[in-house]
């Protein structure tokens, strides 16, 4: 009995509930004879495409800034990077690499200033960050409308000014990573390149955590007073964390979009932080503690839940029930994290 209790403690109630729910859905899927290989392919792809956005939470939490609700800041940088590469008619890996290379310095600058701002409002990072993210997305709507892009891929063919609401990536960077070294096994399509790239990003973040800079950043995030007494410039470390998070957000959306096949502009990124935040929390992170494994487990559980629930619930109920389930799970887990006492002072 004690052992079971311990196991539950270790796994945590949120993961148990969501894992259990997922299991039930899988059983239903089997009963309803929904083709499994397609589902698994789908899960793998969505796992890979969302993973980096979730990974972006890690440096922010480690640096003590809490959950990065201002992820849209990084996302719009990534979108700009992708747009520029398309404007120059780049495609394939060249397009992808150029997109990322343009996005990184942009995200670094944005992250730097955002980090400076957060240093002045310690303790309120999440609340403020959330609305900074919203403001950035809605402000960028005006930019998309006025931006001087010329490529016919990007702008409306007839009528309407500014960039299209969704930009097809078919002829540029669409599925570049997904199709790289992809293979089919027992009807399951493995997006090898995508998964490898996600793994690479995880590895980079993991190695960073082992370097002097990483160790010091985590110390600054774990206990500000301790870090100060150890001669660490806490504010600088927080800025580093925010920059890393923003850069990962930028890369994340590029990877996401190439897999999705479209760039979504205007209001699409408005709530984009929420699924990422939810996934890392489902994985077992808290407002002030996170591991790479939380990212991997969380992204997998959350995306698997969404993928499996879609066909199952559509058979069982009317309307877009999968979306409803997503809303409930996603926001439920965030509230759960926000109401934990161990959350510390970060808000």
């Amino acid at each position: 009995m004690e052992d079971i209790k311990k196991l539950i403690q270790r796994v945590g109630y949120p993961r148990l509930i969501i894992g259990g729910f997922l299991l039930i859905l899988c059983i239903f899927a089997a009963v309803l004879s929904i083709p499994m290989p397609a589902l698994i392919s789908d899960i793998l792809t969505r796992f890979g495409m969302n993973g980096i956005l979730v990974l972006a939470m890690v440096p922010a939490i480690q640096a003590g800034v809490g959950l990065n609700f201002a992820l849209p800041l990084g996302i719009v940088c990534g979108l700009v990077g992708a747009l520029v590469s398309i404007e120059f008619e780049l495609a394939g890996f060249a397009g992808l690499i150029v997109s990322i290379l343009i996005a990184i310095p942009l995200a670094t600058i944005v992250g730097y200033f955002y980090g400076l701002m957060l240093n002045r409002i310690k303790g309120q990072e999440m609340t403020v960050g959330n609305y900074v993210g919203f403001s950035a997305v809605s402000g960028m709507c005006i930019f998309w409308l006025l931006a001087p892009f010329k490529s016919p891929e990007l702008i409306w063919a007839v009528g309407g000014s500014g960039l299209r609401v969704t930009v097809s990536l078919e002829s540029s960077i669409g599925y570049v990573l997904d199709n790289f070294l992809t293979f089919n096994i027992a009807g399951i399509q493995i997006p090898t390149g995508l998964l490898l790239f996600f793994a690479l990003c995880c590895l980079v973040v993991w190695i960073f955590g082992r370097t002097k800079s990483g160790v010091i950043m985590r110390a600054a995030g774990a206990n500000e007073k301790f870090a100060t007494a150890t001669g660490i410039n806490v504010n600088k470390q927080r800025v580093i964390g925010v920059i890393l998070s923003t850069v990962l957000g930028a890369i994340g959306i590029i990877v996401y979009s190439q897999s999705f096949g479209f760039l979504q502009l205007y209001n699409a990124p408005l709530y984009s932080a929420m699924p990422a935040v939810a996934a890392v929390l489902i994985g077992g992170a808290s407002i002030n503690k996170v591991k790479i494994s939380h990212v991997i487990v969380g992204t997998f559980l959350f995306q698997a839940l969404l993928v499996v629930s879609l066909p199952v619930l559509n058979v069982l109920a009317e309307g877009n029930m999968s979306e409803v389930i997503r809303t409930i799970v996603q926001n439920g887990i965030i509230i759960y994290a926000l109401t934990r006492k161990t959350g510390g002072e970060v808000a």
Binding site: V215, I216, A219, A222, N223, K225, F226, A229, T230, G231, K289
Partner: peptide, 17 residues
């Protein structure tokens, strides 16, 4: 409050300074 990283190991606490 200031002296330790309570959620880190002894070795990390000793080494970090």
């Amino acid at each position: 409050g200031v002296g330790l990283l309570l959620e880190n190991s002894i070795e990390e606490n000793i080494a970090i300074s």
